[in-house]
């Protein structure tokens, strides 16, 4: 009974409810429309990246380079269209071209990650760790650590209007949910994550499946970057630098396993919700940045612990 509950994806949603009730009663300003708006606006880009991360975790891999993909696409996109001398400034197609360029870059970087992991067979965490370092270094060098302001209004409106962000997020999560549950790719993804040897023997193109997972992760990171860059109205080489653990953490808290094979966009959405609620209540309590950092570290650990527990119950180990 207990194990069934620990397994279900609803545990996290329930935790969200309990958390809301418990915190909302004594944190002033938690149950306000303004706070809900803020939480939602901050949560959606996180959900977008976490969706890609879910797909990668399902292959028993991990993509630690997402935050630096967000950073590098953010600065490149912003540089294209900033009115401080961007080549596309004043061009009426600036916004769509920049967004598409960012997405293409994200896909390309994801492809590179995927090749390192699936073809060169490097351990996923170290391969994506080095690309994280390289890309964030590249973003900082490229901009000489400068932020890029003065982006066109049409570009900003993609990311700072709740309506468009919501629409984009729903479209993305909906399609990934469909991809995972209703397509051959989703089926193969699970098989590769559960047991790559059995998957290969069953005729699954294992390397190709893994590469696609990282490509998808790169794409979602770039998409999130479009939203975040709009939301913050700047292209920054340190964009979201500190959110890496939130992304992996939210995914794992939701119930997607670090050991591969198990994952769902809905779980991830509830994990993102829980983490955002915690984040927002800590902010409302005006705790310092560092306390939040520590608490988040602890939350991630708990998530990993829960995942290990689930895994061991599932594998029948003691």
């Amino acid at each position: 009974m207990v194990s069934r509950f620990v397994h279900s994806g609803y545990l996290t949603l329930l935790l969200c409810g309990v958390y809301c009730l418990a915190v909302g009663t004594w944190v002033p300003g938690f149950f306000t429309l303004e706070n809900a708006h803020n939480v939602l606006l901050a949560l959606l880009p996180l959900l977008v990246v976490a969706t890609g991360q879910t797909v990668v975790l399902m292959t028993a891999g991990i993509d630690l380079s997402v935050t630096s993909i967000i950073a590098i696409t953010s600065v490149i996109g912003a540089q294209l269209i900033t009115s401080d001398g961007g080549p596309l400034a004043e061009n009426w197609l600036a916004t769509p071209i920049a967004a598409i360029a960012m997405l293409c870059l994200g896909v390309g970087l994801g492809l590179a990650n995927g090749i390192c992991v699936a073809v060169l067979k490097m351990p996923a965490f170290i391969a994506t760790l080095t690309s994280m370092m390289f890309l964030s270094g590249l973003a900082i060098w490229w901009t000489q650590s400068e932020q890029i302001y003065n982006l066109p209004r049409s570009f900003l409106s993609i990311g700072n209007q709740l309506g468009s962000v919501l629409l984009i997020t729903i479209l993305l999560t909906g399609s990934v949910h469909f991809l995972i549950n209703r397509t051959l790719f989703g089926m193969r993804l699970r098989a590769v994550g559960h047991n790559p040897l059995a998957a290969r023997t069953s005729g699954v193109p294992v390397s190709k499946t893994i590469v696609w997972a990282y490509v998808l992760s790169g794409f979602t990171a770039a998409l999130a970057s479009v939203l975040i860059t709009g939301q913050l109205e700047t292209g920054s080489p340190v964009q979201w630098e500190n959110n890496l653990l939130d992304i992996v953490g939210a995914t794992v808290i939701g119930g997607t396993s670090l050991y591969g094979g198990r994952g769902s966009v809905i779980w991830t959405a509830s994990g993102v919700l829980l983490l955002s609620l915690i984040d927002s209540s800590l902010n409302l309590l005006s705790l310092s940045h560092f306390t939040i950092m520590m608490i988040k570290g602890a939350v991630i650990l708990l998530a990993a612990l829960l995942d290990t527990l689930r895994y061991r119950v599932n594998e029948g180990n003691h």
Binding site: T183, L184, F185, M187, R188, R190, A191, H194, N195, L197, A198, A199, R200, T201, S202, G203, V204, G261, N314, E315
Partner: peptide, 25 residues
């Protein structure tokens, strides 16, 4: 290398022949 032991029966059954039941992905 025969089965994904922790995956469900249906997941295991579908993995080889999935392509035959797929129309445009």
């Amino acid at each position: 290398d025969g089965l994904c032991m922790s995956a469900s029966i249906d997941e295991n059954l579908g993995v080889v022949a999935g392509a035959r039941f797929t129309v445009r992905g």
